[in-house]
Write a protein that binds this DNA or RNA. Structure first.
Lengths: 340, 340
DNA sequence: GTGAAAGCGCTAACAC
DNA sequence: GTGTTAGCGCTTTCAC
């Protein structure tokens, strides 16, 4: 910058004014500075400038996701990026792979870089008390998809429990009574909520839960596939399945396909996924809206950064049952349905 | 930091030494500093520290993708993030949606934040001459998936042309002669290369190209779907299709499904996608390896950042034909095949 | 082993 | 309108 000032024959402050688009520079000097900047390919150092500025903003936010490569996470990221771009803010994105330690390290690294705020999908079972240490900092963190543990903060989640309840009620409405549950690690908030929804739907219709038909802790497509095959080979196998998550649904599909049962056993999954409509039959799902989640989280964060100090918000976004065929298959004659 | 130094009753430099893990601090003072840091929840400002450091690295790189929400992009991002994490580097990620102006603005914004380097998937048709202005800067940019225009720089791409040639040869081997081409915007490097591959495969077997069976500029799933329906309703419709990209393949599937022709017309797509194996029939594709592309780009960039000044590299990564059924359908009796 | 002074690139405050 | 001085949070250099 000194270089540019010398070349244009002006003072440092004049260059600073031009770079920041401030008023009060004569057109003549302005042009000389602009030309000098061009000749030296000068580019201002945002961080050095923010160092002295009163409002110490880096125009950068952090985003900690489960895994940037997962479609749910990346839709979230996209929505947040769009909201950020509208404000001239950039996004430092990272994956924590459900690892609480990594989450903590990532947050620390982002703070070292003085991000203005952080949007965080917390790792399963992580304790977020560590964020409490800096009271002001918690005002610049928004949790998405799952609430923090041991900390009050802003959070945006889907209505997991109602969604699961609706999915299972949908199957019960079609006469199914033996409905299998396929679930993720119950330490994950969303998995626990969805399991509650499953149980509640059964309870509402007076169908007793049967733990032998419930499989939790499925961590991969292969796990889910194995679980389905096992369930369907048991005595009195389920006539319908509820899969509590994306990958589990896909594993279930693979399992059903392997047994050639995809047209016989009903299936409703939680979380929509690409091509769900092109499969045979189409896969009925409870669809979340990751773009809406991301948008809401970003807006909440920016409101806080703008100084909103109102009480913590907890936004619960609706989900939607999308019927495509697999969830509308009826139980076979002679199954429990006829005994009612 | 001054605060911490005062609390511990030491000089600024001693705190600095402790924070940076330098040697030469007596254990006693070290402990006092650590304690003071804890009490004040001190967190060093990385950018202020880098300001004075000789080696002016921010330990942050930029990543400009077409769209972070697209599976190919996000796989790339993940690979780059992993390579970066191994070096303690964070990633500033952004989408440019094939918009050359946005790409340029994003690069400028990242440089304002003093990223150490940038990995860039260039926007279609963008002129990258602007990067030439700063000679040193081009050493810290790696292009992925597509080469830059009007600029020499490091680049990592897939072997698009051979992949397309292999896909079309695969169809020719099964007796198809009327092979439709469904393609993206030809201004995109990959689209152009794949079209070349398609034409080359035909030429190698002496099959004359027929422009009435070639549809380029398909920008969405819906575009592709319409194009397929149109092609198949024409006189002497194609008995096989080559789709040059992800979304185009999905549109083609939808079109075939709509005409109930998915078991009659062969299809090979470029780019793998989730669930391609669960469809009926499974979708034969030429699979790129986005993780390998990302890994290679990151390694190349880090080598440059470590001072490697060797000539520009151009890495071409192999692709793989994955047969799943749709590409192995045979042409109907009485089609051109029998006339040979 | 430790600390004081200078300075990284920039902007705030104030004088001209 | 314009330039000067001080100082943001930190590291360097160099005395002690």
């Amino acid at each position: 910058m000194r270089d540019v000032a010398a070349l244009a024959g002006v003072g440092l402050k004049t260059v600073s004014r031009v770079v920041n688009g401030e008023t009060g520079v004569s057109p003549e000097l302005h042009d000389r500075v602009v030309e000098a900047i061009g000749r030296r390919t000068y580019q201002r150092d945002l961080h050095a400038s923010m160092l002295r500025r009163s409002t110490r903003k880096t125009a950068t936010i952090g985003l900690v996701l489960e895994d940037v490569a997962n479609p749910f996470s990346s839709a979230l990221e996209r929505a947040i990026e769009d909201a950020a771009r509208a404000r001239g803010v950039m996004v430092l994105a990272a994956s924590c792979d459900e690892d609480g330690d990594r989450e903590r390290r990532l947050v620390a690294t982002m703070r070292e870089r003085r991000v203005d705020g952080i949007v965080l999908v917390p790792a399963a079972g992580a304790d977020h008390g560590y964020l409490e240490a800096d009271r002001r900092a918690t005002r610049s963190i928004v949790f998405v998809d799952r609430p923090p543990r041991f900390l009050d903060a802003d959070v945006v989640v889907s209505d997991n429990r109602s969604g699961a309840r609706a999915a299972v009620a949908h199957l019960l409405d079609r006469g199914h009574r033996r409905i299998g549950y396929l679930g993720d690690d119950p330490a994950i908030y969303t998995a626990a909520e969805r399991f509650q929804g499953y149980r509640e739907a059964l309870a509402e219709r007076g169908v007793p839960p049967d733990p032998t038909r419930e499989r939790a802790g499925l961590r991969s497509v292969a796990d889910a596939e194995r679980a389905v095959i096992e369930l369907l080979r048991s005595d009195r196998p389920p006539t319908a399945l509820f899969a509590s998550q994306n990958l589990v649904t896909i594993g279930a599909l693979q399992g059903l396909r392997g047994l050639d049962a995809q047209h016989d056993v009903a299936l409703v999954g939680f979380d929509d996924f690409p091509l769900a409509d092109l499969l045979e039959p189409g896969v009925t799902v409870v669809a979340q809206d990751p773009l809406a989640l991301g948008r809401a989280a970003a807006h909440l964060l920016f409101r806080r950064l703008d100084g909103d100090a109102s009480p913590w918000q907890r936004l619960v976004l609706p989900v939607e049952l999308v019927t495509r065929g697999s969830g509308e298959l009826l139980p076979p004659e002679g199954s429990d349905r006829t005994r009612r």
